[in-house]
Amino acid sequence: MTREEYFNALIERHGKEAQEKFSNAAVGIAGLGGLGSNIAFFLARLGIGKLVLADFDRVDVTNLNRQQYRVADLGRYKAEALKEQLLGINPYCVYETHSVKLTEENIPEIFSECDIICEAFDKADQKAMITETVLSDMKNVILVSGSGMAGTDSANKITTRKVMSRFYLCGDEKSDIADGCGLMAPRVAVCAAHQATAVMKLILGQSPV
């Protein structure tokens, strides 16, 4: 299979104009856990030109209940394990990996080429940190965040909301792991799909909401 054949297949599914927009886009994913790994799979399948993937962590057995990793990946850096799988799905995206802890200092540099960043962290204070950093220090970048997806409540409660001019929030905005609710694969993926859908619509020039 050639690169041309692969892209023709994407064009057949998505349309030529949409595919061109996807191919020209660069999206960052901050955190490669339950949200981030799922978002990455969706965006790779869309054929997003460049994905910047950042997470300091390694794959643990407790991740397998919801994150896109395999038993064979245990102990590996998430960024590396994810990139390997993504190359097997779409070999023609550029996957730039960073196995580092993201901070307010390095976020603008690591995601400097991205038009859109997906916030896919686990901790609420990290979500707040990246939101402040992106909206203060990265003037043209749009942030799509995920907050509230724990537990087994209805998937219908997960929404996408435009909160600020460059900030979209996906999730039910209240289900917190701190309340003892676990993170369950399908519900986490619903939130990740909301984020990936928002990214897709932004790239196509549509409003996500």
């Binding site: 856990g33 203060s136 995920g146 907050s147 509230g148 997806m149 909160v163 917190d176 792991i177 701190a178």
Partner: peptide
Amino acid sequence: GDIVKRSDFDKVVVKEDDSMEIVNFVGGG
């Protein structure tokens, strides 16, 4: 319409007719 940095939370005073959005993040992802 402008983000307020955490380091300015104690300094910025809200005025009459101001409009604020406060997002409260919860854990999980």
